[in-house]
Design a protein around this nucleic acid. Structure first.
Lengths: 250, 250
DNA sequence: ACAAAAGTGTTATATTTACACCCATGA
DNA sequence: TCATGGGTGTAAATATAACACTTTTGT
């Protein structure tokens, strides 16, 4: 019974609230990943401007309101920060240590977000001092946020090895080399060109476009785009990265 | 910032609470799986004895208290129901629809539990009218609990395909046939005897005991037990079920 | 014509899968 | 001795992985 002991137990009427159980604050914290070809996998952080821990870097977050569910809250918070709608979001886990927030008992539901970094605009009237950091070089963070980021990095690797979510980090159109570079960044490795290409094309998730990207070679590399239809069907399907990358953590 | 706007922002002191954000009830609901050779994969439910939805079946749950974190709350609730300690528990996801509980706004963190059904004792002075149901035949449940169960079934399949968690559902000592039957139950299939045996032994997670189980054959089948040490190391490692079973959902 | 990146081919090895077969033993 | 489940062997099909090779084109 997730709902024990209402106030009164009058024979057959629904009570108006529960007597047992404490009401506490529910926060949402977003671990936002972006990817840039030049500088690799990035994490979006904001500078905390209130006490305690004022001036330190933190994940973007907010508090759950009575009128919204958690997914809505996460989208709201992310929109406030990035100006983007319909961001790829996935619930990670709940942090609930009693001492995690020195101000007041708060549990935090973490969300893991993947965005196309080039759609991100610093369009926010700087309420938030936001900044991208390479995932390999994250500054000290408030509370348990460092742990949250660590967990999110593991989840990204775990998930991306099995599910084709990498696309969320790239622009609409991308070359196979770009895609491979992204995976190389996620796994800190160098995947074989030929094998990667075959593996990814075998999923049938990509549509080859007519245009080529001439930026990196004379010959030019075909642009591909995601086969949205197949993608939706196959969020369940999976890639087949080298066995070494399947040494999962979760 | 998961912790916005404290009450006052006096130059440099830590405030005592936050002004924005609503305080709400946080429930824990446990999806408890057990396994019995005769009757297959089972789910533990309790009868709700308060309004609303009095008399309907529900997941075992409770409310988070100020002095405990979620894992502790889940263990507490499970101990109250089963009398067991140190149960295998894993956070599933948070259900937070604003209308999910008609009494009062409550979010529910679901936990997915695997127990050895034969350690379970109806030792509770019947505060809870608890009952095991075959997973293939779950009665109507309160609120969003049906959805929670569905999600838990999917997670069990997903996870068990990659991680050796199946053991949690079996007694200390078990035969390979018993283990295979369990997997057959989880995936509603019939795995090949020889291949299953080789796959599972290749993980090196099992220790063969001297004794045999003569219950099901004249020849007798060796009992095995989990190599606890390897198991802890290798919660990350994974099995290799037929590709068909890797058509994951999450 | 040649450098450099895109893209294809090929081969050895390992894994997966299906299924046949042997083993031990109580009735 | 034979039926029954336990346990082993094996060969074809498929997947993985390493790396050599061909293609294209701007300079």
């Amino acid at each position: 019974m997730s709902q024990p002991q209402p106030e009164t137990v009058p024979s057959e009427t629904t009570p108006s609230h529960y007597t047992h159980g404490d009401r506490i604050l529910v926060a949402i914290d977003c671990i936002v990943f972006g990817y840039d070809e030049e500088i690799g996998l990035q994490l979006l952080l904001v500078k905390r401007h209130i006490e305690p821990e004022k001036g330190k870097w933190a994940l973007m977050g907010g508090l759950l309101k009575l009128h919204e569910n958690l997914d809505q809250a996460a989208q709201r918070i992310l929109h406030r920060l990035t100006g983007m709608h319909d961001v790829y979001l996935e619930e990670l886990k709940v942090y609930s240590n009693t001492q995690r927030d020195p101000v007041e008992r708060t549990i935090s539901v973490t969300y893991f977000a993947l965005i196309n970094i080039h759609n991100y605009q610093h369009q926010i009237t700087d309420d938030y001092e936001a900044h991208w950091f390479p995932v390999s070089d994250i500054p000290e963070l408030i509370f348990d946020h460092t742990q949250m980021v660590q967990q999110a990095k593991e989840r990204l690797r775990y998930k991306a090895a099995l599910h084709p979510i990498g696309f969320e980090l790239l622009p609409e159109r991308f070359t196979l080399t770009q895609l491979r570079n992204l995976y190389d960044a996620i796994y800190e490795t160098e995947l074989d060109k030929g094998n990667f290409r075959r593996m990814i094309l075998a999923t049938d998730l990509l549509i080859r476009l007519k245009e080529k990207d001439k930026a990196n070679s004379k010959k030019g590399a075909y642009f591909y785009q995601l086969n949205e239809e197949k993608y939706r069907e196959n969020l369940t399907h999976f890639l087949s990265l080298p066995a070494g990358y399947k040494n999962f953590n979760k």
